[in-house]
Design a protein around this nucleic acid. Structure first.
Lengths: 357, 357
DNA sequence: CGACCTTCGGAAAAGGTTTTCCCTGGGTCC
DNA sequence: GGACCCAGGGAAAACCTTTTCCGAAGGTCG
């Protein structure tokens, strides 16, 4: 509607862009006061039919759109949410971002995004900077310290965490139940007969990594030995760590995430190590590509967009600031696909050879 | 610095958030006028040492940060760029977004993002809406009509396109040279001995798809027959279209993109069709995962983050509005990996069988 | 020693919108 | 028929910052 008018007018202009119409222009055009225009547009107070008609006509004719800066200045609110992610290249975070954005769009909120490049040190500044332009921040998988996070939470109008719960502070959070996910993977591997599992560790500062470690301490024991292998959170990390995992003598590799697992899978393929015949492999998150590789990845499924949507919900709820601090836990679900199988003696022999060459 | 102070103060407060300090508060605290505070912070005019000291101290003590809405209102500029993408789940667009964001961050610009869910109809409104809050828009792979695009360009303060060139209108654009990319793939397949290639089409409204069609008209001929197969732009589309491609009797499948090719590859794997022994497969874009699947995908490599960076550069350049309309062309490069090979007689026989079952 | 120039800092306007306060006019109830 | 109430709309303040204009003070040159 108004867009048509706006575009029509701009079209007729020459290269020089005319300054945008203000509410004053509309008021003059419609023969009313600016207040009336505002009331028509916001509906804050009823306006009788006849002036309303004139205002609407004038708005359309001039292609008027209220200046958001002026609105923001007055209302003290921006109708925007900032999303801070460690790495946009990581499909996981891209999906979470998509979930937040779509939900926000629905509520007429805009989404600001910042990529910290996996640098924990950049998170605070990014969040702080973004928070100036937004009503609050959704912080994805922050790597910063607990102390820093608590401080940040009090400096930002609203803060919601994804995949980071903190007992002490009352920061609303939506998080996957990593303990349960890791436990179900361990159970699955143990039932298959694996006794020695190599775990490809994620970033040590990530809360989700620490949660996984908690689960491993519980799951590990005399009948299931966990070999810890430093790795990281990207597929190249997984690719690099695969050799070490192979050398560990484990019959199964449990990766920090699908993204990492895919890197390891590629490396196994390069080395001619058959999955799952010679070694089993599991991921975490169930990203889209995990269904496309061969063998398809056994993993734990998480609705990432839903994570974003729930974060948005928490964000909205924390507006009515009474009930801050609520935490939503999302339960992941094991999906057994082709990358896991019972260990074979042949597998371990073959592996020795592979490692020696 | 100031953040520390800000956080410190907020920390001491109770649950109720104190209203943010304004420039007036700082001025009072420092015993100067607001004008002086502004001058210290923006450096618009020199201020002697002693008051500057007091101002800086006051700013730190109060944790003052200028209100962006007020600044924006006055300056008439937002220091933000809007990015409109068809689908954030698509790694291609996520990478482009990352490129823009990182470049923008460098220039102290914020990034607003909108996801149109691959709906051509949503693009215009998303761009228009975002443009209210930004100094301009980077439009990724728009599917809208040429006419609509031209109109949009005149309604948005600054508009830069990615992967969409338009002869008529003077819209700055950065685009991959799809013709060259497709041509190099065709040449590669022909050199391998393929004579019948199935092409998995992208969205028909996408400019990049039309560019590919132009290249195919040139490349196709008596010695290279192109079979057109409707598909789409996502991996599930590729998965679905794989069967039709197989039935077409082609010895090679050229997918619209890597993302699509990975879907097709997964389907081939399910069907037990060996790649590249029984059928060759090529992608386009070289997304990260293409190096991780088995066989690794023969494709055409595009630096997607660089695309975003260049779009940002165009965005900045078009600020000095004299030289609008410049177009940057990015040349993709063929990378031959494991998914292509010479066709075999066995392959085509096998395929018949597969198709019949 | 006086006049002029320079430098520094304050007062105030401007930027566009929303909302409060107030006034006016018409309708209703007694 | 008069008093009161309600609704509708205008004037103006407020939101916060930047910048222009201007005044004052100090220094320099003639």
């Amino acid at each position: 509607m108004w867009c048509n008018a706006a575009m029509g007018r701009a079209q007729t202009g020459t290269g020089a862009r005319p300054p945008r119409a203000t509410i004053i222009d509309v008021a003059r055009e419609a023969g009313v006061s600016p207040a009336t225009v505002s009331r028509v547009l916001t509906g804050s107070k009823p306006v009788s039919a006849e002036p309303e008609q004139r205002v609407r006509a004038a708005v359309a004719r001039l292609g008027y759109r209220p200046n958001p800066a002026a609105q923001g200045l007055l209302r003290g609110t921006t109708s925007a949410v900032g999303v801070v992610v460690p790495d946009l290249s990581n499909p996981y975070f891209a999906e979470v971002l998509k979930g937040v954005t779509n939900a926000a769009q629905h509520a007429d909120f805009r989404t600001l995004v910042a990529d910290t490049g996996e640098k924990a040190g950049a998170e605070r500044d990014a969040a702080l900077e973004l928070s100036r332009w937004a009503d609050g921040i959704v912080l994805c998988s922050p790597r910063m310290s607990q102390w820093e996070l608590t401080e940040l939470a009090s400096a930002v109008p609203r803060l919601v965490c994804v995949n980071r719960r903190s007992r002490g502070s009352r920061i609303p959070a939506v998080a996957v139940d990593f303990e349960a996910g890791v436990a179900s993977i361990c159970r699955h591997l143990r039932e298959l007969g694996h006794r020695r599992v190599a775990y490809l560790r994620g970033p040590s500062r990530a809360w989700s990594e620490r949660a996984r470690q908690r689960a491993l301490r519980t799951a590990g024991g005399p009948d299931l030995e966990i070999v810890q292998i430093p790795c990281g959170s990207s597929s190249v990390d997984g690719h690099r760590a695969a050799d070490v995992a192979l050398a560990s003598g484990a019959t199964a590799v449990m990766a920090f995430s699908d993204y990492v697992a895919l890197g390891a899978l590629a490396r196994f393929d390069e080395l001619g190590v058959a999955v799952p015949e010679e070694i089993s492999l599991t991921g975490f998150d169930d990203i889209a590509l995990s269904r496309l590789v061969s063998p398809r990845l056994t993993t734990v499924t998480v609705d990432k967009q839903d994570l974003g949507r729930r974060a948005w919900q928490l964000f909205i709820d924390s507006g009515a600031d009474g009930r801050t601090g609520s935490t939503v836990e999302v339960m992941p679900e094991l999906v057994v696909r082709g990358s896991t199988a019972a260990p074979t003696a042949a597998g371990s022999i073959e592996r020795e050879i592979v490692h020696e060459r």
